[in-house]
Amino acid sequence: MTRKGRRLVLIASALAVIGVAAGLALFAFRDGVVFFVTPSELAEKTANLSPQARMRIGGLVQPGSVQKADERHVSFAITDNQTDVKVIYTGLLPDLFREGQGVVAEGQLINGVFRADSVLAKHDEKYMPREVADSLKQKGVWNDGSGPKDK
């Protein structure tokens, strides 16, 4: 093979691999990406959501909203102190799940109820999912010193 030919093989295979990777990435972005919303944003958007859309909602666990139907079927409400969304979840809640604390649920909105297939809670008393902290700040329910304001 000539020098030119070898170089051509190299360049062509590089382009092929990169092309395939780009294709895969674009394809995966269609399905693999999950949007994060607050309960208020969810309420605004409900109308134009496709029913299959997966998303994450973050906020605080509404105090007094946690109900356990039996050991593994739980329902609770996530709130940003303006709007709240009812969430139902099948499975065990994380160790750090507590009323009034930050939480992120991932799943789908079906008939106005959010069916979560995973629930993440904060790691320690300082930590709160950043999205939650940001949205709480936006809504003015955040004290810089102490985290969420008590209401």
């Binding site: 691999v17 395939v20 990777a21 895969l24 990435a25 394809f27 995966a28 972005f29 399905d31 693999g32 990406v33 999950v34 949007f35 994060f36 919303v37 994450r56 999205e131």
Partner: peptide, 28 residues
């Protein structure tokens, strides 16, 4: 980095999870 860049530019928050990486990283 895409989620970080997207948030910095448009303010929209997304998470790119395991499905994305399984689909792209796996076949490669």
């Amino acid at each position: 980095l895409y989620p970080l860049a997207l948030e910095a530019v448009t303010g929209e928050k997304i998470s790119v999870g395991a499905p994305f990486f399984n689909l792209t990283f796996g076949p490669l």
